[in-house]
């Protein structure tokens, strides 16, 4: 596996604030790698360190095997799609896209032809003469993408590129970005705070919290076996089973996470499956979410479990209702003990 980007013990402090706190990780060549985390978790700082807008306080960063220490942004083989696009307001779309070639001294005719190609790649072929101010948010986003890709970077950095778009457009762009990345075969490093986006697009993702990486892995690994309490709560919904309880039920010596859709609800008369853990409780809330239905079940010890089931066709007798006494069952293998980072 070729390494595109390597962080080695990278720290970035702003005064007392540890924006990036001793990070070591690698991103493979051609990978779609997401940095997921709440705002202020250090993901954007990492991106800025990579782009060269900021320097690490300590540690070092390698891009394609070369140290990036002292290398200014304009000499790095990476390009950035900015969160608010950062299009040049005094240039029209085609000149914006061709900017990277212009500063390299490429002849005007050549660079405009190339910019045209890039614009058709992002499906904006006929808007070259417009000014950025005349475009919609989604169109600006595409121009920013085309502009960043024209230099054929080996690594593309994307800083919450879809953050300002509405839901439908965002979903369309997610599919398009993913397709683009597969076709071009370049490394995408994608910063987002949207866990669904990170799960659906990434080959691997890193979950950031307070300047550190809580967990790094494929979307499936992160979702199925969250390593820490933070990851279990930030990525998807999760039930936290306290350690003493987890020990009694399944012999684990740590807090455990249990995904709500791994729990079955059944009427008390029904027989559980072989080896299942069964706890009795009362349904206190039912919320319909379209494809899924979310139930809150209060157990006898006062603890609440969240249970998500596929919504059934119609409200039959087996449909759980508020006030109903139920048994919640799950298998031991669905419980994942959580660690703490350091």
């Amino acid at each position: 596996m070729k390494i595109a980007v390597r962080f080695h013990s990278v720290c970035r402090y702003f005064g007392e604030v540890r924006a990036v706190d001793n990070l070591t990780f690698e991103v493979a060549d051609g990978e779609f790698f997401s940095m997921l985390g709440p705002s202020g978790s250090g993901k954007t700082t990492c991106l800025r360190l990579l782009a060269g807008f900021d320097q690490p306080t300590s540690g070092h960063i390698e891009i394609h095997g070369k140290t990036s220490e002292g290398v200014p942004p304009y000499e790095r083989d990476v390009n950035t799609v900015f969160q608010d696009y950062a299009l040049f307001p005094h240039m029209n779309v085609i000149d914006n896209v061709a900017y990277g070639l212009m500063v390299k001294g490429v002849r005007r005719a050549t660079r405009l032809a190339r910019a045209d190609e890039m614009l058709s790649l992002v499906k904006l072929g006929d808007l070259g003469a417009r000014r950025p101010a005349q475009l919609s948010g989604g169109q600006r986003q595409r121009v920013a993408l085309a502009r960043a890709l024209i230099n054929e970077p080996r690594v593309l950095l994307l800083d919450e590129p879809l953050g300002a778009l509405d839901l439908k457009l965002r979903q369309d762009m997610q599919i398009e970005l993913k397709r683009l990345q597969r076709n071009l075969g370049i490394t995408f490093i994608y910063v987002t705070h949207d866990q669904e986006e990170a799960l659906s697009m990434s080959d691997r993702l890193a979950v950031f919290n307070q300047g550190r990486i809580e967990q790094i892995g494929t979307p499936r690994e992160i979702y199925r076996t969250p390593g820490t309490r933070f990851v279990a709560n930030f990525v998807g919904l999760s039930n936290l089973i306290p350690a003493e309880w987890a020990q009694r039920l399944a012999g684990f010596h740590a807090d455990c996470s249990l995904r709500p859709e791994r729990i079955r609800l059944m009427v008390p008369e029904e027989q559980p499956r072989e080896g299942e853990i069964v706890l009795g409780g009362t349904v206190v809330d039912v919320r319909f979410h379209g494809a899924d239905t979310l139930h809150e079940v209060e157990l006898k010890n006062g603890q609440t479990l969240i249970v998500v089931t596929k919504s059934s066709e119609d409200a039959g007798p087996q449909e759980a209702r508020v006030g109903m006494r139920v048994h919640a069952c799950w298998s031991k293998s669905d419980m994942h003990p959580l660690g703490n980072i350091n």
């Binding site: 060269g52 807008f53 304009y74 950035t80 950062a86 040049f88 390299k104 960043a148 230099n151």
Partner: peptide, 15 residues
Amino acid sequence: VPANLMEASADLGAR
């Protein structure tokens, strides 16, 4: 002039 325009320019290879 937003500061990120200058960053964008440097990012695209402008000295």
